[in-house]
């Protein structure tokens, strides 16, 4: 098994701790799973940290800064494309020291290669007004439960808190995007027409006589703008959940993920990941992303495997409210 991140042909190198202490053996093959990425420069590596959702406490950030200053030969960090901090220009002979010092401040090193990667996430409902799901909490959960699980090729997950999809769930191997189903309660409606104005999808029109909404669920993308705009709370959240997308990727040959479930509740997310990884490991070939595996084996096969977790989630809770 080779890894394209580390191209050194050497398998064992001598790694001192600080140049004075006794030398230790380090296996380059172990580095693959450890987030050490070979640089162009001889002996120098990028050390990728594990920052799920891109969130770091200021306390920890200060400590990481000190370590980056100490170990980066050029005194620079880089924000990885997937929200994690990378310490650049680290001499491999100092890996052990750096990792030990990072460990002391509770900072783990990330990974590369064929495994479940650190999840990315937007701000989510904690502080972003558009947020419908707690993406940060979910990213942390996924990181704790699934980080580093071996897969045929890389496996990237992300959480977006709303249909604006800043975390690009459509480009993930498995992406979760927040949604809310709106329900209209006629008694609370004054016919003010703000919801029809607030809806950017044209899913709500106002009745010309009463001003009351005429809702087209086919056009609704479940963003919750109507709920947030309604002055009298006549639009209410019927339920929150995740739109689940599978098989996306960027890179040389981008693929758009396909939507496989809507309104998956928070508590079913771990099962969705577990079963998807299980299916991928059983069906994917080495170096094949799950999107390609699904194309080759068949989406229906994947969906059949996912039935225990995706099955039984109603398409709409509020059918009745839209009739008449």
């Amino acid at each position: 098994m080779t890894d394209h991140f580390i191209e050194d042909k050497t398998n064992k190198v001598t790694v001192g701790t600080d140049g004075h202490s006794p030398a230790q053996k380090m296996d380059f093959n172990d580095l693959k799973s450890g987030g050490f990425i070979k640089q162009r420069q001889k002996d120098l590596f990028t050390v990728r940290l594990r920052c799920p959702g891109g969130r770091i406490s200021t306390e920890k950030l200060v400590e990481i800064s000190k370590l980056a200053h100490k170990y980066s030969k050029k005194g620079v960090v880089h924000l990885s494309y997937r929200q994690s901090l990378e310490i650049l220009y680290v001499d491999y002979k100092e890996f052990n020291d750096l990792v030990a010092e990072l460990e002391k401040i509770g900072q783990k090193v990330a990974s590369c290669g064929p495994r479940v990667r650190v999840p990315t996430a937007c701000g989510g409902c904690e502080y972003n007004p558009n947020g419908l799901t707690d993406t940060q909490k979910m990213a942390e959960m996924v990181d704790q439960k699934f980080f580093g699980t071996p897969t045929p090729h890389k496996f990237k997950t992300s959480f977006s808190g709303c249909p604006i999809d800043c975390s690009r769930t459509k480009e993930m191997d498995l992406g979760f995007q927040g949604v809310v189903e709106p329900a209209w309660v006629e008694e609370d409606c004054t016919g003010c027409t703000i919801c029809a104005e607030a809806c950017k999808e044209g899913a709500i029109e106002s009745d010309t006589d009463t001003g009351k909404p005429i809702f087209d669920p086919m056009k609704c993308i479940y963003c919750g703008d109507c709920i947030r705009a309604c002055p009298t709370e006549a639009w209410k959240p019927a339920r929150y959940g995740h739109t689940v997308r599978v098989g996306g990727k960027h890179g040389r040959h981008p693929m758009e993920a396909v939507e496989v479930c809507n309104f998956l509740p928070d508590e079913k997310v771990p099962d969705a990941i577990r079963l998807t990884v299980e299916w991928y490991n059983a069906n994917g070939k080495r170096y094949e992303r799950i999107g390609t595996a699904i194309k080759r084996v068949g989406l229906d096969k994947y969906l059949k495997h996912m039935e225990p977790v995706f099955g039984g989630i109603p398409k709409r809770l509020t059918e009745r409210a839209y009739e008449g």
């Binding site: 004054t190 027409t193 703000i194 703008d225 009298t232």
Partner: peptide
């Protein structure tokens, strides 16, 4: 403006008590 301002007003804890459409604009 009408898509965004009422949402933000609500989030600040104020109450929209009346909405009136007048052609191209809204009086709230």
């Amino acid at each position: 403006p009408i898509q965004n301002v009422p949402k933000s007003i609500k989030e600040e804890g104020h109450k929209i008590v009346e909405v009136q459409r007048e052609g191209d604009f809204f009086r709230i």
